[in-house]
C-alpha cells in the first residue's frame, strides 16, 4: 500500500529472505528447541539424579573444539537472522485483534507477542546458563567442577532455584516459544503451499496443537525436574557460588 521506492535488488531477494525466515524458524531453531527440551527432560530419568542429563550433554560436548562453531552456525546465526527479520516483520504489521476477534487473528497477534517474549527470554537464558554470560555474572551452567565431578544438572538446577521468580520466567519462556513454534509450523504449511483447503488447515491445526501440548509437557516437566532437584547432593561449593562465579568450560 505504501509507495516506498523499491530497488530491483530488494525485489529480487525479498522472497528468498522471507522464505529463509520461515526455514530458519523451522529447521535449525525449531528442531533445536525440540531436542533441547527433550534433552533437559532427561533430568527426570530414573536412576542417579541428573546422570542421564549429564550423559546427554557430555555427548554434545564431545564435539570438543567443534562445539562453538557448530553452535554459532547451527543455532546462533539462524536464530539471530530469524529474530532480526521477525522484528522487521512486526514493525510492518498492525494487529487489529481487538477489533476483529477471530481465532486466526488472535493467533497472528500471539505469534508476534510470543516471538518478542522468546527474544527476551532467550537473552536472559543465555546470559544465565551459557558460558558467554559468565563475564557478566551469569554463565551458571558447568558440566564439571575443578575436580572433574559432574555438575551439569546441579548447576542448572541451582540457577533455576536461585530466586522464586526464575521458575516463572522459565514457564513463560517455555510456553511462549512452544506456542510460537507450534503455530509457526501451522502457518509455515500455508506459507509453503502444503495445506491449502480450510479442511486440511483444520487437520494440520489439530496436529500442531498436539505437538504443542506434548512439547509444553516435556518442557514444563524438565523445568519441574530442575526446580525440585536436590542441589545439595552435588559439590556444595560449586553449587553455592554457581550464580556468580565465572564458569570454566568442562
Amino acid at each position: 500500500m505504501a509507495d516506498q521506492p523499491v530497488s530491483p535488488t530488494q525485489d529480487k531477494y525479498y522472497f528468498l529472505v522471507r522464505r529463509l525466515h520461515s526455514l530458519t524458524g523451522l529447521v535449525p531453531v525449531g528442531i533445536f528447541l525440540c531436542v533441547h527440551l527433550a534433552t533437559n527432560a532427561t533430568v527426570m530419568a530414573p536412576g542417579e539424579p541428573g546422570a542421564m542429563f549429564q550423559e546427554s550433554i557430555e555427548r554434545i560436548h564431545a564435539l570438543g573444539p567443534l562445539l562453538v562453531p557448530v553452535e554459532i552456525v547451527g543455532i546462533f546465526i539462524p536464530l539471530l537472522f530469524h529474530t532480526l527479520l521477525g522484528f522487521q516483520i512486526i514493525f510492518t504489521s498492525r494487529s487489529n485483534a481487538q477489533q476483529y476477534r477471530y481465532g486466526g487473528n488472535v493467533r497472528y497477534m500471539l505469534q508476534r507477542t510470543s516471538g518478542m517474549i522468546a527474544f527476551v527470554f532467550i537473552l536472559y537464558h543465555l546470559w544465565q546458563m551459557h558460558w558467554f554470560g559468565a563475564g557478566l555474572g551469569g554463565g551458571a551452567f558447568e558440566l564439571h567442577d575443578e575436580a572433574g565431578v559432574a555438575t551439569g544438572a546441579a548447576t542448572t538446577a541451582a540457577a533455576i532455584q536461585s530466586a522464586w521468580w526464575v521458575v516463572w520466567a522459565y514457564r513463560l519462556g517455555i510456553v511462549a516459544t512452544v506456542f510460537h513454534l507450534a503455530n509457526g509450523i501451522w502457518t509455515s504449511l500455508i506459507t509453503w503451499g502444503i495445506t491449502i483447503r480450510p479442511n486440511t488447515q483444520r487437520v494440520s491445526g489439530y496436529a500442531c496443537t498436539a505437538l504443542g501440548v506434548v512439547l509444553c509437557a516435556v518442557g514444563l516437566g524438565a523445568l519441574r525436574g530442575f526446580a525440585t532437584f536436590d542441589v545439595t547432593s552435588a559439590d556444595p561449593e560449586a553449587v553455592m557460588s554457581s550464580g556468580t562465579r565465572p564458569a570454566e568450560r568442562g
Binding site: Q10, P198, Q201
Partner: peptide
C-alpha cells in the same frame, strides 16, 4: 514474489472471514 507480494501475508485469515462474497481467499493465498 516481489516486495509487497505473497510473503507479506501473515496468515491471520481475517480476509476470508470478512469477505462478503465468501471468496476462498486463504485457498488462493496458499
Amino acid at each position: 514474489s516481489g516486495v509487497g507480494g505473497i510473503v507479506d501475508c501473515g496468515n491471520s485469515q481475517n480476509c476470508v472471514k470478512v469477505c462478503p462474497k465468501d471468496i476462498p481467499l486463504t485457498d488462493s493465498i496458499a
